[in-house]
Design a protein around this nucleic acid. Structure first.
Lengths: 136, 136
DNA sequence: AGTGCTGGTCTCTTTTTGAGACTACCAATC
DNA sequence: GATTGGTAGTCTCAAAAAGAGACCAGCACT
């Protein structure tokens, strides 16, 4: 099989999936992608892929997130089914966040992207520096 | 080899990469991820993976992007080395945007994520509907 | 009685994004 | 010759999202 043609077909299919065949207002793929492409979503999913964490632990783990955004991002991740929220009736009550099966399955491709970022951040930073040096 | 242990190690390594071992202020992986996790970045990369496009073509292709955000997202993608911008001296001058080698290499893991989204958007929408029905 | 820990919410300010008018140039049309 | 249309943007102002920090209730410990 000609892998070039295969790749082009794959690209076109994915592009169509992402554009919903022209119906941009109601594209499920974009909807899903936007849900996980927020500023903090991927970082929290990466953290919870390691192990479950409590609210305060996550806050200390990611010191530059505001409490407000931590609440809201966890809420959104829970709403979309990536994260499970469990309240333990301790005093004071503690809340544990963990990945669901859906969250774990999404973690796999996300991992690929993070791996790519790890391998290529030098190239990206180099490109940025070169661009800025040329007074883009 | 125990694949469970391998996976845990992989997770921990990636989590460390994403948190830069505690140095959150200067983490190259988060820096790269945030550069491609904007609202329009992934969509434009997917479009340009199909073939090069001109500014106006992209604007018509993605009708719900504002001209301002199209300009800025393409600028950012160019600055980070994902996109090449070429001006042709026609009248009026036309500008073509295409993926660089770096952009194409980033497209591969991005593709995995979009594929996941395509396969799982029903689950996500279902989770969201169930959550909202429970008056979250 | 005061301090600290829990997981948040509320308000205010700053940043980011969106909507739409406006630019300059040229070609073809009316 | 004036109008219209297409090129790739920029500029300004309004709306939405994000960040900073105060505040809350309840209980434990000192």
């Amino acid at each position: 099989m000609d892998s070039k043609i295969f790749n082009l077909k794959a690209k076109l299919e994915l592009y169509k999936a992402m554009t919903n065949g022209g119906n941009f207002a109601d594209c499920p793929v974009r909807d899903v992608i936007q849900g996980i492409s927020g500023k903090w979503s991927s970082l929290l999913v990466m953290a919870l892929a390691e192990k479950p964490y409590r609210f305060g632990e996550l806050r200390r783990l990611v010191p530059d997130i505001s409490q407000r955004m931590l609440t809201q991002t966890l809420y959104d991740l829970q709403r979309d089914g990536y994260v499970h929220r469990e309240v333990f009736p301790t005093k004071p009550p503690s809340v544990e966040y963990s990945l669901t099966d859906l969250g774990r399955s999404m973690f796999l491709p996300l991992q690929q992207l993070v791996q790519w970022a790890e391998l290529n951040h030098d190239a990206v930073r180099g490109a940025r520096a070169a661009f800025d040096a040329a007074q883009g």
